[in-house]
Every structure is written in C-alpha cells, then in structure tokens.
C-alpha cells in the first residue's frame, strides 16, 4: 500500500548552504494510511520543521516529499489537502465556529448547503454543535482546540497534522483531550501526524513513534517495541531511563529507576542468578508517600531507584540488584546531544 506521506532524504537548512544550520537532515519516513504517528523529541530537534515541510509552509532544501504517492515537494499548501491543527489554534477571530469549520469547504467551492451540513457534522464530532454561532473569542482554550480539530477534519484531509496541539492546555484537560483526539482519529479513520515533546502523549497516541534529535532520526517504531528497548543513550534518556551504570561484564547499558532493587547490605540473601549485584551507599532519599526516590553511589556511578518502602537512610550501605531482563544494552555509547 502506498504510504500517505513519504519523506525521502528530506533535509532543511536555515540560512545559507555554507554556514546555515541544519534543522532536519536526511530524514526518511513512511506513514501508513489510517495510522497515528508522533514526531517526538526535545525542542530544536526538527520535529516542527518536519511537520511544516509536510504541510508545505516551508520547502525542504534537500530530498523529496511524496503525498499519496505523488511528488509534492513543490506543491503549495493549499493544494496538498492537509488538515493542520496549530499550537495556537489559529482560529479566524472574525468568523463564527460554523464559518471557521466551513472555511476549507468554501475554499473548495462546495455548495453552501453542503458546507453547512458538513461543518455541522464536524462540530458535532467534537461536541460543540450548541456553540455553532459563537465566535472563537467566546470559547475556552479546550473548546478552541476542538474547533481547530473540527476545522481540520471537515475537509476530509489525506493527512491530519497536529503541531503540539495540547501544549497550551492545563494538565487535566490535556489528558482528557488526548482521549478525544484518539477517538476522533479512530472514528474518522484519518491518518494523523502529531508533533510533541511529551513522551506520555506519544506513548498513548502512537501507532508509530518517531524520535528525533538534532534533526536526525534516533529511533522509530511501535511504542511497545521502542519503550522497553531504547536503541541508544539519547532515546533512553528521553524516555526516562535515568541510569547508565557501568556494570561488570556488560557494555553500555541502561535501566529504569523503578526496576532497580535495593536490599540491606547485612541480609545474607543469596545473590540471585537472574540479577547482577552491585554494592553501594545511599546518598539521598526523597520521600514520595507510596514510595521513595533513592540515589545510591556505586563504583560504577550514581544509580537512581524507585523504592517501595522508606527503610533506607543516607549513608547506609546497600546491595543493589539489577534484574538481567531489565538491563537494556545500548547500541552505542554516544553522548546525548545536550551534553556534547
């Protein structure tokens, strides 16, 4: 099946070819029909630039963009049939919700009756039929977000592009809108590409998550494949693998804080064969109610650990058990971009 969106070695440099800055370098990507893809990474990783290139707002300085199998690298945005939801929503302040949502259909010169009907349906999809005659300024942020989504969906785009659409909402609403976003995408069967810096958002929404760093692809795949097996130190760190210990007999490895087990040094418990054992000293304890965050100094560096009890104090000697099946071997030992 032809991918809805395909990037072939796409790159974008800001400034001149000689001394410009590469925002995106040599990116390959194929987005299958009906799937939800997220572009994930820290700010400046090139995710928004990539999305804006797919939308046609900026032109790649190298490579090709194919939409529905045809080369669209030089196609202006209005002829790409994309539905874009902006971080700032960008609703037209002088139009009612119906007119906002119907804008794309009017631009396509559809008959007025059809425009009204489909705008109404799109507003109903996001639960805002009752506000159809209001202006965007009279709505809350969450409602504006829904209108922006309805407006993008109403044109039945070949791909729905979402640029950090939830980042301006408060935490509770954001979680609620994630569900809403997923429901709309599933109900409409649209192909969606979402840009985010929030790993939880990416894990919850994605069929495919694409992790970018410094304009380059670090890893991509289904969240259930990527999350337990980050390919390199950057991805591991970004996904919350806080520990990069030196473990005798291993190359570069990482382990999540919640998988590190601590026991008192004095217990005569046998070293389990399914775990690697290290010795260390408790450096700090942060009480969190249901658990404690404990930092332990070892010969191979500091280890952070989520411990289910409150039975350790700074200065105590501890045994550290790293379950072998939780240790993730990293393909490279490269330093993450931030520390370079």
């Amino acid at each position: 099946m032809t991918p809805v969106v395909q990037l072939d070695g796409v790159g974008h440099r800001f400034g001149s070819a000689a001394n410009g800055v590469a925002a995106v370098s040599d990116l390959d990507l194929a987005v299958r029909r009906g799937t939800f893809t997220t572009l994930l990474g820290p700010s400046g990783c090139g995710k928004t630039t990539t999305l804006r290139m797919i939308a046609g707002f900026i032109r790649p300085t190298s490579g090709r963009i194919l939409l529905e199998g045809t080369d669209a690298t030089d196609t202006p945005p209005e002829r790409r049939n994309i539905g874009m939801v902006f971080q700032s929503y960008a609703l037209f302040p002088h139009m009612t919700l119906t007119d906002n949502v119907g804008f794309g259909l009017r631009a396509r010169r559809r008959p007025a009756a059809e425009v009204r009907k489909r705008a109404g349906e799109a507003l109903e999809l996001v639960g805002l039929s009752h506000a159809a005659d209001r202006k965007p300024g009279e709505l809350s942020g969450g409602q504006q977000q829904r209108v922006a989504l309805a407006r993008a969906v109403a044109i039945e785009p070949s791909v729905l592009l979402l640029d950090e659409p939830l980042s301006n909402l408060d935490a509770r609403l954001r979680v609620q809108m994630r569900q809403e976003l997923l429901r709309v995408q599933r109900e409409t069967g649209l192909t969606a590409i979402l840009v985010t810096h929030d790993q939880d958002e990416a894990l919850q929404l994605s069929d495919t998550m694409v992790i970018l760093n410094g304009g380059r692809l670090e890893q991509q795949g289904d969240p259930r494949t990527v999350f337990p097996a980050p390919a390199n130190r950057f991805v591991a760190q970004f996904l919350g693998y806080d520990n990069f210990p030196e473990v005798p007999g291993f190359g570069p490895v990482t382990i999540r804080p919640e998988h590190v087990r601590l026991t008192a040094a004095v217990t005569g418990e046998e070293a389990a064969t399914d775990s690697v054992e290290l010795a260390g000293t408790v450096a700090d304890v942060t009480y969190q109610g249901s658990h404690c965050l404990i930092g332990v100094d070892t010969a191979g560096g500091r280890l952070n650990c989520v411990h289910p009890g409150d039975d350790f104090r700074p200065g105590e000697a501890v045994r550290i058990l790293l379950p072998r099946h939780r240790l993730v071997e990293l393909a490279d030992a490269h330093t993450p971009a931030g520390a370079r």
Partner: peptide
C-alpha cells in the same frame, strides 16, 4: 496570530 494565514492556506485557500 501570524499562523492565521497559514491556517487558511492549509485549508485550501
């Protein structure tokens, strides 16, 4: 919002 014009272009205008 400078994105207003982009929004219109994206919608096919």
């Amino acid at each position: 919002d400078p994105r207003l014009e982009e929004a219109a272009r994206g919608l096919g205008a």
